[in-house]
């Protein structure tokens, strides 16, 4: 019964979408607002990457909301699985079996990943990329050692400080503009944060700073999420292992 209703519902929705799609202008978007933004953003925002201009300037509040969702998820996961898990983990008896090559490979990879991550963040307003993409790469750089070395742990204290402060910096930059009697999250408000020349690194007002805060926050958030889940799984397996030993 459940299967039938599931099939009917999903099939029905797919059929509905197909029917509607024949009426919709796929392939020839209307771009009512889109083309206006493309024309206006070089003058209004001054960032070469139009998507970055939309994310941080035109729809900056969306990005703030999305940051908060990640933060909420991380806080929720921390509360559910328990932050203290990492402190109570006894040193593993399992031998480190990830091998010499991956050990050395990590040591080489981490600086490279950090450079690439920060490059993508800093050039987010000029080239494809930005805070989210760079932040994910940073998260991988932090999390790789946990994958390879079984005794490596991420420090949850530092992560929670970074995620809190980076989020606060994003908001404070927005509020800084209000201090100059500008609207919240307006990217230009004093001489330091000017429009600059299109295509230069220090252009588009506060956008690079916002992207930096965003990247650090996303990186810390994702690394924290992964580490909390990994810690929980490790404590679970170790707990049951030690139970087995006593039996």
């Amino acid at each position: 019964m459940r299967n039938v209703s599931g099939l009917l519902f999903s099939g029905g929705l797919a059929f509905l979408l197909l029917v509607i799609a024949t009426h919709l202008p796929f392939g020839q978007p209307l771009m009512l607002v889109g083309s206006d933004i493309i024309q206006a953003s070089p003058h209004e925002v001054g960032s070469a990457n139009v998507v970055a201009a939309i994310l941080l300037a035109y729809r900056g509040i969306d990005t703030l909301g999305e940051l908060s969702i990640l933060f909420t998820a991380a806080a929720g996961v921390g509360l559910i699985l328990g932050h203290r898990a990492s402190q109570n983990v006894p040193p593993t008896q399992v031998k480190n079996n990830s091998g010499f090559i991956s050990q050395k490979g990590i040591e080489l990879m981490i600086p490279l990943l950090l450079v690439v991550g920060f490059y993508i963040i800093f050039y987010g307003h000029l080239t494809p990329g930005g805070g989210f993409q760079g932040g994910v790469i940073l998260a991988i750089a932090f999390f790789l050692p946990v994958l390879v070395q079984s005794d490596a742990r991420l420090d949850h204290n530092i992560i929670s400080i970074i995620e809190g402060l980076a989020g606060a910096v994003f908001i404070l930059i927005g509020l800084w503009a209000m201090f100059y009697e500008r609207p919240f999250l307006q990217p230009f408000f004093n001489g330091l944060f000017a429009k600059g020349t299109l295509g230069e690194l220090w252009s588009a007002g506060t956008l690079p700073l916002l992207y930096l805060a965003l990247g650090l926050k996303v990186g810390a958030e994702l690394a924290g999420l992964l580490a909390t889940i990994a810690d929980f799984s490790i404590t679970e397996t170790q707990g049951s292992l030690s139970e087995d030993d006593t039996q």
């Binding site: 978007p29 771009m31 607002v33 889109g34 083309s35 933004i37 493309i38 139009v50 998507v51 201009a53 939309i54 994310l55 729809r59 969306d62 990005t63 909301g65 999305e66 969702i69 990640l70 989210f132 996303v218």
Partner: peptide, 13 residues
């Protein structure tokens, strides 16, 4: 159109 690209980035996160 750049707007859906920005929206999708948000939706993915």
């Amino acid at each position: 159109d750049p707007i859906p690209q920005a929206l999708v980035l948000t939706a993915i996160v």
